[in-house]
Design a protein around this nucleic acid. Structure first.
Length: 850
RNA sequence: GCCGAAGUGGUGGAAUUGGUAGACACGUCGGUCUCAAAAACCGAUGGCUUCUGGCCGUGCCGGUUCGAUUCCGGCCUUCGGCACCA
């Protein structure tokens, strides 16, 4: 009697089994080769969403596949638990962030377990555990010693909504990456990590990351933004001082006819003559009043003011006026730019506006530039003119020569500039890792001695949402004594950016219970680096760059011995769904739409664009509902089958239904043929049995190759679907029970990484007592793949005209003769001359006629 | 503007090294079973057509080739990143 497929009961039973046997726990004491698979850990927002389901389903396929292949697989899970939503919940609903976080974690842990993901749950931790963040404080103290962490006053990105500072990487479209509120400038004393010290290595090592998508590497390279050029000193007229500029266009130095300084430039005041003082002050005041983000947008009007002073072009000895200009940025290069209006569009516009001199120093090959008639700058290559000894050279070739000349003449040096800024990590928030330093009136900034760690985040704190960080109002916390002199002192009340925690969590998974330091070298040396990392592309710069930086820092501090944290990276696409809206009620959840109408008012619903699932657009599907309706295996299968992992996945309920039907079809295929399987027959190697065997082994090969390295899960699944269809279509089941059994067992084994519950159930249902993991991944038999006959496509002049079947052992001449004799082919070549026949063995014949 | 990715049926997608374009699935249509329905199973499904056949067809134009979704040149569109960076 056939059993019915009851996903919920099956899944709960197997999940219980895995939990009680601690099945996916691993240790480094193993003779197997290690494989560390990691998915980006979630923020405990309260509930998992479809993006998590997709991310973790992809990861679980790889983890289970590698385990079946015999690897010692580390597949951990944890919680990126510090951060603002917890604090906001405290302010809004009066729940303590710690309580809120712990409850959310408990719920999400349950949801993940319900999905059947094969995590090493014994390694789970949350970044808000003092056992985790205390080690981060220790790492910070080491960084402080090495000068890799420092404090400085600077203009920072301030989110007025979140009441805190944002790193440059956390500003998107001038808004806060979390809440979208427009970011303001604010002058604050801040802790920084010296990521710029690693700029060169971070850039160079992108070359080593062959397992990363090009798009992510390009984004990181752009973000680091290396440019090579020269620093050149321009003497100031009637002064011993000089102005230093950075340029990548030293080939145009002979054409520099004025100088532009940032309004904030330290020399600006000294250069201003009494006659110009009033105008300059007015200009600086105007620029100050302007928003920094506005100022750096391209369509912003370029304005400047003459300081009244002149400097000397060091190559031409010409006297050139010094301007302040609103487009010159103090925090890039030297804050001063030599202006070459003929060969830079910005400088051209500026020169036209203020009637400044133009000197052409590059002549293009096919036209003659005349400063009097030029309407725009010539920014392409050409031949140098008006450039002294360099006249006649190609401008690109001259770059090196002029750089050498500047060095020789001691007026310049070759330099490299990076766009990358140091990482500001101070946050004026409560729910984060406290920065372990103390401020003493006599001793200054004093690091908390290591023996006094951890600086524990206090729990008895009031959340009002006003007056900045609750820590700064918590006397018991900030009142302390100086570790050096013992005098009364104040503890730092800023906490770390939560991206600090996520920069090294991957390493702590190697040794989550280690008590002598952040990292157990032995465990880390065994497990690290992460072999495969999987997560959303939205972390392409922020998290992935910070984690790379931290890896290098921790290596240099002796904590671990790797250069790069993640050998391979898979960035999965977003989960999208069409939006639906009612003219009266606005956005609608899918469950509020009945037969295309709003369930509240009955008005017809407008279908909007397909966008990333988000609560604000209400185009979300709750994984819990999906699991309750179809089970976890269907949810997993759909998210893997509907699209390749790196592409966006469009939600389609009907397609989910199709996946559920397929699992039912697999279930029946096994139970309908259970009597054939019972005796465990040997696969037959003759007749149609041999054909089924060939399909089986071909499928094993295809699925293996699709999963391994390629991550083409959708085609792997479709290949298994074809095998299932082949079993249904196989007419001689009774004659060939061995071939049928082999096919069914292959189906179950091949599907195991995708849908672990139903496959384990079917495997045991087929009479096996050991688990699928003990059986291992199937291996194809090359001999079973061999074809007796080949289907040969016959083309005439490249168009398919016929198909023939020939023996696999037939030689080219035989194949050619058979093809030419074909009736349909004859019709096409009868009245023409055969000029050439191309034979691709086993595949195709192309007859060229004319 | 610069850099990166993509563009294939009604839909999601496949074609791994240049060799049958549209695998697999969804949807639709037809059939079997049923009093009926659901489920299941079987079949059809790129467009056009003078239909035992033929023509067109992978964003557009051109090239290389016996043969191009795949390679080359030039465009168009969409998405993503960077951008007054000297």
């Amino acid at each position: 009697m056939e059993e019915r497929y009851d996903p919920i009961a099956i899944e709960l039973a197997w999940q219980k089994d895995w939990a009680t046997s601690n099945k996916y726990s691993v240790s480094e004491q193993s003779d197997k080769e290690k494989y560390y698979l990691l998915e980006m850990f979630p923020y405990p927002s309260g509930r998992i969403h479809m993006g998590h389901v997709r991310n973790y389903s992809i990861g679980d396929v790889v983890a289970r596949f590698k385990r079946l292949q015999g690897y010692n697989v580390l597949h951990p899970m944890g919680w990126d638990a510090f951060g603002m939503p917890a604090e906001n919940a405290a302010i809004k609903h009066g729940i303590h962030p710690a309580k809120w976080t712990v409850e959310n974690i408990a719920n999400m842990r349950m949801q993940l377990k319900r999905m059947g993901f094969s995590y090493a749950w014994d390694r789970e931790f949350a970044t808000c555990d003092v056992e985790y963040y205390k080690w981060e404080q220790q790492i910070f103290l080491q960084m402080l010693k090495k000068g890799l962490a420092y404090k400085k006053s600077s203009t920072v990105n301030w989110c007025p909504e979140c009441q805190t500072v944002l790193a440059n990487e956390q500003v998107e479209d001038d808004g806060c990456w979390r809440c979208g509120t427009r970011v303001e400038d604010k002058e604050l004393d801040q802790w920084f990590f010296k990521i710029t010290q690693y700029a060169e290595e971070l850039l160079d090592d992108t070359e080593k990351l062959s397992g990363w998508p090009d798009s992510v590497l390009t984004m990181q390279r752009n973000w680091i933004g290396r440019s090579t050029g020269c620093e050149v000193e321009f003497p100031i007229e009637n002064s011993p001082d000089k102005i230093k500029v950075f340029t990548t266009r030293q080939d145009t130095l002979y054409g520099a006819t004025f100088m532009s300084l940032a309004p904030e430039h330290p020399q600006a005041q000294a250069l201003t003559t009494p006659e110009q003082r009033e105008q300059v002050e007015a200009f600086i005041a105007k620029v100050r009043a302007q928003d920094k983000k506005n100022r750096t947008s391209e369509d912003f009007e370029k304005e400047g003011v003459f300081t009244g002073s002149y400097c000397i072009n060091p190559l031409t000895q010409t006297r050139i006026p010094i301007f302040l200009a609103n487009f010159v940025l103090m925090d890039y290069g030297t804050g001063a730019v030599m202006a070459v209006p003929t060969h830079d569009q910005r400088d051209f516009d500026f020169a036209k506006k203020y009637a400044l001199d133009l000197v052409v120093v590059i002549q293009p090959k096919d036209q003659v530039l005349d400063p009097a008639t030029m309407t725009e700058a010539w920014t392409d290559s050409g031949i140098l003119v008006n450039s002294g000894q360099f006249d006649g050279m190609d401008n690109n070739a001259a770059k090196d020569k002029i750089a050498d000349f500047l060095v020789e003449q001691k007026i310049g040096a070759k330099t490299v500039n990076y766009r990358l800024r140091d990482w500001g990590v101070s946050r004026q928030r409560y729910w984060g890792n406290p920065v372990p330093v103390i401020y003493c009136d006599t001793c200054g900034v004093v690091p908390v001695p290591e023996k006094d760690l951890p600086v524990v985040l206090p729990t008895n704190v009031k959340f009002t949402g006003e007056g900045g960080s609750p820590l700064a109002q918590h006397e018991e916390f900030y009142k302390t004594t100086c570790p050096k002199c013992g005098a009364a002192a104040r503890r730092e009340t800023d906490t770390f950016d939560t991206f600090v925690e996520s920069s090294w969590y991957f390493a702590r998974y190697a040794c989550p219970h280690f008590e002598a330091g952040p990292i157990d070298r032995q465990a880390a040396d065994y497990w690290l680096p992460v072999d495969q990392y999987i997560g959303g592309v939205e972390h392409a710069v922020m998290h992935l760059l910070y984690a790379r930086f931290f890896t290098k820092v921790m290596r240099d501090l002796g904590y671990m011995n790797i250069d790069e944290p993640f050998t391979n990276l898979l960035t999965q696409g977003m989960v999208c769904k069409e939006t639906q809206s009612c003219p009266e009620h606005g956005w609608l959840y899918p469950e509020d739409v009945v037969d295309g109408k709003c369930s509240k008012c009955g008005k017809p619903v407008t279908i909007g664009r397909t966008e990333k699932m988000s609560k604000s657009k209400m185009n979300v599907v709750d994984p819990d509902h999906l699991i309750a309706k179809y089970g976890a295996d269907t949810a997993r299968l759909f998210s893997l089958f509907a699209a390749p992992p790196e592409k966006d996945l469009e939600w389609n309920e009907q397609s989910v239904d199709g996946c559920y039907r397929f699992l039912n079809r697999v279930w029946r295929a096994v139970y309908d043929n259970l009597s054939l399987v019972a005796d465990n027959p040997v696969p037959e190697n003759s007749g149609s049995g041999r054909n089924l065997r060939r399909t089986t082994h071909r499928t094993i090969k295809k699925v293996t190759e699709d999963i391994d390295g390629r991550f083409h899960f959708n085609t792997a699944i479709s290949a298994v679907m074809e095998l299932v269809n082949a079993v249904y279509a196989f007419e001689d089941k009774q004659q060939y029970p061995g071939a049928v059994t082999e096919a069914l067992e292959a189906i179950v084994k091949l599907l195991a990484p995708f849908v672990p519950h139903i496959t384990e159930e079917l495997w045991h249902g087929m009479g096996h007592t050991e688990d699928l993991e003990a059986v291992g991944w199937p291996v194809w038999d090359e001999k079973a793949l061999v074809e007796d006959e080949n289907l040969i496509v016959i083309q005439v002049n490249g168009k398919v005209r016929s198909k023939i079947t020939v023996s696999a052992t037939a030689d080219n001449a035989t194949v050619e003769a058979t093809a030419l004799a074909d009736e349909t082919v004859q019709r096409f070549i009868a009245d023409k001359t055969v000029r050439k026949v191309i034979v691709i063995p086993g595949k195709l014949v192309n007859v060229v006629v004319g």
